[in-house]
Amino acid sequence: MSATAFRQVTQDRSLYVPAGLFLVLLCAVAFRGQGLFTNNGLAGAILVATPLILTALAITPIVMAGRGAVDLSVGPLMGFVNVTLITWLVGNGITHPVAIIAWAVGLGAAFQLVQALVIIYVRVAPIIVTLSGFLVLSGVNLMVMSRPGGVAPDWMLSWGAGTSVFSPVLLLLLGAFAIWGVLRGTMFYRNLRMTGADERMAYTSGVQVDVVRIIAHMVGGVFAGLAALSYTALISSGDPTQGSTYTLQAVTALVLGGASLSGGRGGALGSTLGAINMFLISYLLSTFNFGTVSGFVTQMAFGLILVGSLLVNVFVISRRTVA
């Protein structure tokens, strides 16, 4: 798998920047100390980074489908799955793993199916539909659970211990990659890219653009469900308030990963790299101590790094179009 990933990085120039940034950050983190490169460090990192990686993956197919379809609803959707899981299922004594996983994945896919149908048949710009989804779910989440609380099912508590690299959380991540890998191997991936790059061209050439869009959304929904599972494992409870944060982080990760929000360009590898880079930036900043203003310095530095890497992206992209 890493071999194909490597080949992709060397072929696709939009991955140069995220891959380069990744290496730089990795060196910087190593330079700051060995904390991350121990079993516990890595296990903790996987635990913390997985929800972010999975939400970034969740919006990847949707953004790729074009029409400026940035899925703003992804964070609240993850939160929705999380709080309903804790309140409705666990709260009513349903804790069987199959039921929990089916609920998470099914709910994510169902919600995205609804959004896709609204986008296709009501024909309102996708970003407006997902903005609406964002607001609705943000509200509903707080109605389902007014403040963070509840407990995850017993069997999930050990997931969040962060003591082993090969935890079930890693399995969630690998599961998502596997799904994506299978899709990439089919014509769906190319149809998706073409739909995103120029929908009118794809439509007139006989691509079933509506079907492609629906599948893209549902795959995104499944990833959002997996993200919710990993998030539940991470906090071992329910939290209705983090939706907006995760949406912004996921979109940022996507852009840092070299995807184009106007469709056609991007992929799971880029989004994953983007998300890992975001995690590494936060991790790196947390190794410094700025005293009382620490939080603010982190925020500022994070913003500046974002700006910097976007500028490098621009440089690479504009070089590419000239070439």
Partner: peptide, 21 residues
């Protein structure tokens, strides 16, 4: 109708296949 962000090859064969197959 040509997709600027796609390669020439992809542009030539767009729509030739089924959704998956």
């Amino acid at each position: 109708l040509v997709a600027d962000e796609a390669s020439v090859f992809e542009n030539l064969y767009v729509g030739r296949d089924g959704v998956f197959r």
